[in-house]
Simulated scan of single mutants.
Amino acid sequence: MEQLTADFGGAGVVGTGVGPVLEKFDGISRIAVLRGGGLGDLLFAVPAIAALKAAYPGADVTLLGTPIHEQVVSATVGPIDRVRVLPYSEGVRPGDENPAGLEHFFAEMRAERFDLAVQLHGGGRYSNPFLLRLGARHTVGMRTVDAASLERTVPYLYYQSEPLRALEVAGFAGAPPIDLEARLAPSASLDEDLVNNEAQALVVIHPGATDPRRRWPAERFAEVAASCAADGCQVLIVGDSSEQPLAERTAELAAVSSPSMVRSVAGQLDVSGLVALLARCTVMVANDSGPRHLAQALGTPTVGIYWAGNVINAAALGRSLHRVHASWITKCRSCGIDVTQVGWTAPRCSHNDSLVEDIAVTAVYEDVRGLTARSPRLRGR
């Protein structure tokens, strides 16, 4: 209990949330939230940012994030007022550091006179010292035992739902949850030239993932796409420019039987276009990836392919609109290393064998069919 009191910074518990909800801070009008990383990382933080926005009405919320975050915020309606792109900094935004540029960034941030800075970027080994240099009156965030302390800190343990972890941090800042998962709306409409109005439904597939071990084989996605096309659905394969070969291969494999109903649009959409497409489609099928999280945030039903460890951290909480297919493999197929140990507990081996390739196509397709039949986005509804 003594450690808990120390972490709370002496604040009293005033409500309940994912964890304790502590007393609110006084005089909060400017809030900075630190969350680097990719698309999914941003979406994990959105519920916590929405909670902060509700707890401190009228406060301006600045996300310290990455270029993809800035693009998503511009393409959606949500709780973030503005994005300031992070400079390259070890453990916060990987890249070639520019010491003079970093100093300039922190000088500008201190001039913002933030009342509250919230760290949602990992265990704090690098992100807590970064946050402290902002000069905010109050600081809240996560902390491993070797990280610098903040005014109020939540213990960081790897296997925890990322949105719920962020909400626990928001609770320490005095902000109870208003949503457990991200909710966004598109700010632009879809290019109608993408849509085949003759099709019964629009299914979007994303076969990519940052970690190749999280990727279901293209052949499996192609089988699902071909079956959906045979049912009269239009199928669009999405991805960024680096995923274009994978998306095109998936589309080619699927289009053998239904060439007019399946095609790749990978590398052809900007973030605003992807947002509009995901907000319009009937169902999305994807690996554990940023676009799947984005579809979920936009209210679109999803079928996700997951390694079991990532189910804990990143899967949708509900099953009415979102289905999860999990692989329970715990060892690398090539070398046998325990893949459940991550980060500081064990090094990652050099192998990229898929951990999810054994997930059955029939089970995934049946979930796509079921969600398509009930989707709020089915044509004519």
Rank of each mutant, 00 (worst) to 15 (best):
Gly290Phe: 05
Thr302Leu: 00
Ala111Trp: 00
Ser264Thr: 12
Ala51Lys: 01
Gly370Ala: 15
Val77Ser: 11
Leu4His: 06
Gly123Tyr: 09
Glu112Cys: 09
Val21Thr: 05
Glu90His: 06
Leu4Tyr: 06
Ala147Tyr: 07
Ser258Cys: 12
Pro259Ile: 06
Pro20Glu: 15
Gly19Ser: 15
Arg82Leu: 10
Leu294Gly: 08
Ile312Arg: 14
Val21Asp: 04
Val18Ala: 08
Gln71Gly: 06
Phe25Ala: 04
Ala6Tyr: 02
Ala279Gly: 15
Leu52Cys: 12
Leu190Arg: 04
Arg143Glu: 15
Val224Thr: 15
Ser272Trp: 00
Leu22Phe: 04
Arg137Asn: 12
Glu223Cys: 08
His351Arg: 03
Arg374Lys: 03
Tyr156Leu: 04
Gly318Arg: 07
Tyr158Lys: 05
Pro376Phe: 12
Asp358Arg: 08
Gln71Asn: 08
Ala147Phe: 05
Gly267Tyr: 04
Val145Cys: 00
Asn310Cys: 09
Val118Gln: 01
Gly174Asp: 03
Asn98Ile: 10
Leu42Val: 10
Pro67Ser: 11
Val169Gln: 03
Met284Gln: 08
Val14Glu: 14
Val73Asp: 06
Ala185Val: 01
Leu371Ile: 05
Asn310Ala: 12
Val18Gln: 06
Ala254Tyr: 09
Glu70Arg: 09
Gly95Lys: 05
Arg280Thr: 14
Gly290His: 04
Ala247Arg: 04
Ala75Arg: 07
Arg113Pro: 05
Gly299Leu: 09
Phe130Ile: 05
Asp191Ala: 14
Glu108Phe: 00
Asp26Ala: 15
Gly123Cys: 00
Leu116Tyr: 09
Ala182Leu: 01
Val303Asp: 11
Arg280Ala: 08
Asp231Lys: 00
Ala185Asn: 07
Ser264Tyr: 06
Leu317Ile: 14
Ser227Gln: 15
Thr345Tyr: 11
Ala185Ser: 14
His69Val: 06
Arg113Leu: 07
Gly123Ile: 01
Gly290Leu: 01
His325Asn: 02
Gly232Gln: 09
Arg113His: 14
Ala32Ser: 11
Ala199Glu: 12
Gly19Val: 07
Glu90Leu: 08
Trp307Ile: 10
Ile359Pro: 00
Met284Thr: 13
Val195Leu: 13
Val169Tyr: 08
His351Leu: 10
Asn196Cys: 03
Phe8His: 10
Pro87Gln: 01
Arg82Gln: 15
Leu274Glu: 13
Val46Asp: 13
Ala51Tyr: 13
Gly299Asn: 13
Val83Ala: 13
Asp146Cys: 03
Ala32Phe: 05
Arg369Asp: 10
Ala173Thr: 11
His322Tyr: 12
Arg280Met: 03
Ser334Thr: 14
Ala254Lys: 02
Leu294Met: 07
Ala218Gly: 13
Gly38Ile: 04
Val303Leu: 05
Leu202Phe: 03
Ala117Cys: 13
Val262Arg: 03
Val61Gly: 07
Thr62Glu: 11
Gln3Leu: 07
Asp231Val: 02
Val364Glu: 07
Asp7Gln: 01
Val361Lys: 10
Gln341Val: 03
Leu150Glu: 02
Ala54Lys: 02
Glu192Thr: 09
Cys332Gln: 01
Ser227Met: 11
Gly58Thr: 10
Leu194Asp: 12
Ile337Arg: 09
Cys228His: 06
Gly304Ile: 04
Arg93Phe: 12
Glu243Thr: 11
Ser242Gly: 12
Arg113Phe: 03
Ala182Glu: 08
Ile68Cys: 11
Val145His: 11
